[in-house]
Design a protein around this nucleic acid. Structure first.
Lengths: 245, 245
DNA sequence: GAAATAGTGTCTCTGAGACATTATATA
DNA sequence: TATATAATGTCTCAGAGACACTATTTC
């Protein structure tokens, strides 16, 4: 195995972001409109080149901040931090018609943002329900550029399976949330209805999963609900069971 | 987001392989001795450059065949095929002191090979127990080059968690195996002792997990054991529970 | 015979699913 | 008042863990 820098073919390396949130009871992904060829005018996942002296995760966090203003670390204040993790890497030789591009995809789980349309330097950016991007009969106008539909599908599947055995569903909620809000996250991500009583028993009975924060809220209507924040426990054992098995 | 080929910094892209097998009741990883600087003489994970017109998974399968002779597809004969899946991508700017290298790691689960030392064009290649490569006090002579200890740790963790809820443990076994042999795989990978009777009930009671093949063997000593092959079910639901929770 | 592994059965307890019921807000 | 959501409780059944016991081989 000779190892000569002149031996290896040059690659471009990018990061692509699957940014998921729950809005109006639907799982949504952040999409941006492409301003140039190829796939000009089509929607795509946000992303960009990794810089020469930049780590992959750093590049993903930078792109995320540029597109949404979201940060992945608590900035001292009480803002909920988005969760960021590496998803997978896509390197088909012809996934980009211009050159050889290897893209490292990252998955971001974010709370519903106050600003309806994310700011940043991206042209048109919007939240699109994943059902409309990944359904059986996706309209041509909604079809994602490159192999981004595949990347999005992988990200959605990762999110669906990870909230089973981790406390990551709280990443979709504001810093303080109720049991019912957390349940509606599960229902939106999985696309199923969960029994409110069994759900309540499960999440409040798991030590370290939820920490009561003291107040109550009626923002969902009905009887005031206790407010919680995510506890330190990152693993959920035994897992939350996804119905329809 | 201007998108000009001259904009992007050039990267080298490699694949690194975490090839795991179970030998003599121990989880082992394939390691090769480095023949040149940096880290000359140290052990490392097998791997190499991705070619210009080659898919990432293809490059991983090619490197695997070169180093071990293993194939990832059934070749028509009854040889057990190794399992190959993408693990993660490592791109710290200084993980290779010579240039910017992004490495896509793949995880391979292989049955114990008949040949004690894998062939191929790699110089010294051998199976090393992962406990010796990842323990708390790893000897200097056993320390892996680059960030390969981290990659190996990620691969081992992936394997440990995946056999919980999938039928992948059978990838460590020959094409036909007994319940006891499968149990010893779990015990080696997890490093725990499992109750043989509860294990037997679990795996034989899960529909589609094991298919009886008709014969028996006494290669483990004792009463003859029925032979099975892996069934079509790839998911194991409910999962096999890892003790010490 | 002893010793090893294979295979079946039995008991108990945790926990998920399917309900009922009560509590407290808004319209 | 009706209606929404929140919170607690009760029953049943599947399944994991902890065993006992029998079966069939090798030494």
């Amino acid at each position: 195995m000779p190892y000569d820098p002149s031996d290896f073919p040059p690659f471009a390396v990018t990061v692509d972001l699957v940014v998921l949130t729950v809005r109006r009871h639907a799982l949504c992904a952040l999409t941006v409109r492409r301003g140039e060829e190829p796939y000009q005018g089509q929607w795509a996942l946000p992303g960009g080149f990794v810089r020469a002296e930049e780590d992959l995760a750093t590049a993903a966090a930078r792109e995320l901040a540029e597109e949404t203003g979201l940060h992945t670390q608590e900035s001292g204040d009480s803002h909920a931090a988005a969760h960021l993790e590496q998803l997978a890497t896509y390197g088909d030789p012809h996934r980009d018609p211009r050159m050889r591009v290897v893209s490292v995809a990252y998955l971001v789980l974010a709370p519903d943002l106050p600003a309806p349309t994310p700011g940043g330097d991206a042209g048109g950016a919007r939240w699109t329900p994943v059902a409309r991007l990944l359904g059986d009969a996706v309209e041509a106008a909604e079809r994602l550029a490159f192999d981004h539909a595949r990347i999005l599908a992988d990200g959605v599947e990762r999110a669906r399976s990870k909230i089973e055995y981790s406390s990551l569903a709280a990443a979709f909620c504001p810093a303080e949330f109720t049991v019912g809000e957390l349940r509606r996250v599960y229902e939106a991500v999985w696309g199923v209805a969960l029994d409110p009583r069994n759900f309540h028993r499960k999440v409040t009975g798991t030590p370290g999963f939820l920490v009561p924060v003291g107040g109550t809220t009626t923002r969902q209507g009905g009887r005031p609900a206790q407010l919680f924040r995510a506890g330190g426990a990152s693993a959920l054992n035994p897992p939350m069971l996804r119905p329809e098995v």
